[in-house]
Design a binder for these strands. Structure first.
Lengths: 347, 347
DNA sequence: ATTTGATATCTAATCGATTAGACTCAGGCT
DNA sequence: AGCCTGAGTCTAATCGATTAGATATCAAAT
């Protein structure tokens, strides 16, 4: 497992102080820029000693005395055990998060949890003061995650929720995007193209996100004077195959849809698949709009028209709030970032 | 960002000792199971005091004195900045890793790096003694990652490489699977089905994995007495669209392939797409074998026949080696886990 | 009865950084 | 001259756990 011997003796702040001929306090002041002023000469001496000795502050000692770990946890609460890691979707946020954190010497700890998991490990992690804050991605809405949020609150760890509006009762802010706006954008885009028979493929109804996307579709349809038809609104549970099956079913109806708004790109692929099966042209015979904008969306043909959620922006924002590089508006518990219609070839 | 005030006073080991009427040493012994024996009565008193006070050891203090952080870093070195997080492929390993670590109270720190990134942040992280060990996933082979490995070695941090054979010069063990075996399995499967005209879609040649999969394909073909034909061996760079394009090209040849071994499931989808475009039946007119077994492989139709790498096993194994729950065989610098042919519908 | 040894427990030093409090010194004020 | 102020630096206490060394207790060995 690599060199187990200790090849290089530890360099401590003491050593630096000695080398620079100053006190340990002075060195600390220089490193941390305060809380007392330092003279330029002293600063120079210390900095060159640090460089010469290749000194790096010990994170444990810092954490103990200074009560900062420079670590943020990303806590997920999924329905399936491995969900968080296997979604292209989440990748965008994690990438943004880690990069933003790295920029200021902070680190990301992964803490995946699945529904039904005991919250004790989370409690333990928080109470051991391992992290300065957490980014919570809980796919369910209140009250299903109350137990977790209570654990977080009780530990006193700063917390920012993502992909949900936060929680007023617990005082946690949330950074989210507007599923309603996304659903409306998608549906209106199809309406604007002249479609009157627009179907919906919905995600797993346990997800708030799935429910919101569906209801905004319904509202938009109805608002435009078209009656809602349950026959062409199907729950496909985020699943490609189910989406394909449901699409086939709907296309076999006496009055088949001419357009489909799928609540995820995956399901949109299922719909495209079905269209392909039947020799339908996209978008001429069947227009398809997805949601998420996963990488595949612009790799498969036809290129998928979809709704893009600002995952990266949300990641960056969450990181900044937690590391204190941006102040949160104490009034606004919810920050909603706009979604975007990405027009490609499928609609 | 949640409650910033400190709602509950800190509970320390001192408090527990006082409450139980014993010394702090005794409490520590009980918690850590040693290094000295403790009597059952004392243990009981301490444990109930811990429970009553809801005590959780402070991780920073532990780290400082005990030199263990209970944290493992997952360090990636990718060609693209966000690659590590957006691959279904890696998800399997990360899930296995975190779950295994959580089991023993260890945590996973994500540390993604992209080619060309300055290794300084890694150096800094390691020298600050933030982690007990690292799992290194460096997609390139030596000598491209020497600079990074040097940094790791110099820091003295235990390191296990995954998806490559480790590195003898640095003394790091590796846990990997056999790309050659996978390529041979796939190719032989197609040969066994009677195919004589077998094409290959190769990944990005900068990846050792892509090169190995390609050369084992070539060797297997040639070993069976079929001459290697460069016209039906194409580099598609892991890209779906390129794979589709190359498949079209090959199918237009005077002597088109009847089977394709794609070095990744993604590229296999590209091939399937092309077959679909031309109205070819799979596997009758064109047989396709992929590599990786990503979730999509058993969600799209036809279900993809593919090679499955034991990512989860590798993750678990790496975790155990680093946390000391399994001893590494000091002789064997490489542990190669078997791959598996998953027979489904496409070949 | 005394020594030996093993077992169980306690005392206190220690890990390496942060920071409040004490100190020094120069310059400005009365 | 004497006092005050503030900038710059140093001394030393402190964070909370681990663990080597000292101590106590009791059973077995001499």
């Amino acid at each position: 497992m690599g060199d187990r011997s200790k090849p290089n003796k530890r360099v401590t702040l003491q050593d630096v102080a000695q080398r620079a001929g100053v006190s340990t306090a002075a060195v600390s002041y220089v490193i941390n820029g305060g809380p007392r002023p330092t003279s330029p000469e002293l600063r120079a001496r210390v900095l060159s000693a640090i460089a010469e000795l290749d000194y790096h502050p010990n994170s444990a000692a810092r954490g103990l005395r200074g009560r900062r770990t420079n670590t943020i946890a990303f806590v997920t609460y999924d329905f399936l055990p491995n969900e968080s890691f296997s979604s292209h979707y989440l990748g965008r946020m994690l990438t943004a998060l880690t990069r933003e954190l790295q920029q200021h010497g902070n680190y990301l700890l992964m803490f995946p949890l699945a529904t039904g998991d005991d919250p004790t490990p989370l409690r333990k992690m928080l109470k051991s003061e391992r992290v300065d804050g957490i980014v919570a991605r809980f796919v369910q809405d209140p009250p299903h995650t109350d137990a977790l949020l209570e654990v977080v609150q009780e530990s006193g760890t700063p917390c920012v929720c993502v992909e949900r509006p936060g929680d007023a009762r617990f005082g946690f802010p949330g950074i989210t995007y507007d599923d309603d706006e996304g659903g409306a954008l998608a549906t209106n885009h199809l309406l604007g193209l002249g479609h009157r028979r627009i179907a919906h493929l919905a995600g797993d109804m346990r997800y708030a996100t799935a429910r919101r996307r569906m209801s905004s579709y319904q509202r938009t349809i109805v608002a435009s004077g078209i009656p809602f038809d349950a026959d062409i609104s199907a729950v496909a549970n985020w699943d490609i195959r189910q989406a394909r099956g449901e699409t086939h079913r709907m296309l076999s109806l006496p009055d088949p849809p001419t357009a489909i708004f799928a609540a995820s790109d995956d399901m949109a692929f299922g719909a495209l698949h079905a269209a392909h099966d039947r020799g339908l042209r996209v978008p001429e015979d069947l227009a398809v709009v997805g949601f998420d904008d996963i990488p595949l969306a612009h790799q498969l043909t036809p290129l998928l028209t979809t709704i893009r959620a600002p995952l990266d922006e949300m990641g960056v924002r969450a990181a900044r709030l937690l590391t204190g590089h941006t102040k949160a508006d104490p009034e606004a518990l919810v920050e909603t970032r706009p979604v975007q219609l990405i027009r490609r070839d499928s609609a």
